[in-house]
């Protein structure tokens, strides 16, 4: 490259910057695409309904999907390592119903809440150990976690249990208002978890090791990174997120129900993929997954606004997932051909 100090035209400098940005952040493009879709979705809904992009709807969007955001954080980490965690939905059901049952039995919330989060982490630990130390495929190991969580949820209770505990209900009923905007403690919790997750992914060795493992596990090991510990830990984190989501969902619905979260793992995976994370591992952003969840939630809201069957949500999410993976596929193929 030339060392000449020729004055570079302003426009050239802009394009130079653009090129640097693209070469540094090529892997973020799908996330930007998700953001664009989110914005377009909002604009479209606003035009169609006249009254959609209001502080109330947008505040409710976070409130209604707080548990999904929390699950998506753990799921993103797992998927970036090249794994998958099918157990999150049933872990959430198990911890949620346990939370309600324990509170119902008179245990104090200060003990119950950490207890159920740790319980979620333990199921995650089981999955992680199976994956790392017994070479079980993540799909199968987390399938065991799925069965375990779901079964345990029914062992705890076959029926739904109402929650009367003030501390837990406070999470949901408290509304911090800023004009017409509001946020609940569950929403704050979800945002904190997402920001914390994003920070860990970007700025800690553990986070970079997650990417490294997804890029090439063998190379990561040769680089002296703690591959084994990282792989176990992402499942533990996903389990902890499952526990936290159980708490949030219980607070949200005011009850624990053992059939909660059937198929939620798929919603989460879909949201994560829509948010720009590659299922092959190595690429993905937690904030992208948050956007993915918001896209998912917006579609749900739009459909309920239209008064249409909720079954449309999954059809549309399915189609959107399809278009995303096709686009991702095209990008990958083009990148390969350029080599």
């Amino acid at each position: 490259m030339s060392q000449s100090t020729m004055a570079i035209g302003r426009r050239e400098r802009v394009s130079e910057h653009a090129r640097t940005f693209v070469s540094r952040h090529a892997s973020m493009m799908p996330t930007f695409a998700a953001l664009l879709i989110f914005v377009l979705l909002l604009i479209g809904a606003q035009i169609h309904f006249g009254e959609f992009v209001t502080p109330r709807t947008l505040s409710a969007l976070l409130l209604d999907n707080a548990y999904l955001v929390i699950l998506a954080v753990g799921m993103t980490m797992v998927i970036v390592t090249g794994g998958i965690d099918l157990s999150v939905g049933s872990v959430m059901a198990f911890t949620g119903i346990s939370c309600a049952a324990l509170l119902d039995a008179g245990y104090p919330a200060v003990l119950v809440v950490p207890g159920i989060v740790v319980a979620g982490g333990l199921i995650g630990l089981l999955v992680g150990v199976l994956v790392q130390y017994f070479d079980v495929q993540p799909f199968i190991a987390s399938l065991a976690g799925l069965f375990l969580g779901r079964g345990l949820a029914f062992v705890v209770s076959l029926k739904s249990i109402r929650v009367e505990d003030d501390a837990v209900l406070w999470l949901q009923t408290t509304r911090y208002r800023f004009g017409d905007w509001y946020i609940t403690p569950t929403g704050i919790l979800a945002l904190v978890v997402a920001l914390l997750g994003a920070f860990v992914m970007q700025y800690t060795r553990f986070g970079r090791t997650i990417y490294a493992v997804g890029g090439n596990e063998q190379s990561a090991r040769l680089m002296g990174l703690a591959v084994a510990r990282t792989k176990v830990l992402v499942y533990v984190i996903s389990g902890l997120c499952g526990g936290l989501a159980g708490l949030v969902l219980t607070a949200y619905s005011g009850a624990g129900y053992p059939r909660n979260g059937i198929g939620t793992e798929l919603d989460v995976i879909a949201a994560v993929v829509i948010g720009g994370t590659l299922l092959t591992g190595g690429t993905g952003y937690i904030l992208g997954s948050v956007i993915g969840v918001l896209v998912y939630g917006t579609i749900k809201t739009v459909i309920s606004y239209m008064g249409a069957e909720q079954s449309w949500t999954r059809i549309i999410v399915g189609l959107m997932l399809l278009s995303f993976i096709v686009v991702q596929r095209v990008i990958v193929v083009r990148a390969e051909r350029r080599r």
Partner: peptide, 22 residues
């Protein structure tokens, strides 16, 4: 299209039940 099987079939898994409900 050479899409990963898990994801490719996930699409129908999500959408299929919706179609059945319709």
């Amino acid at each position: 299209l050479e899409i990963q099987p898990i994801i490719a079939t996930l699409v129908l898994m999500l959408a299929g039940r919706g179609v059945a409900l319709l």
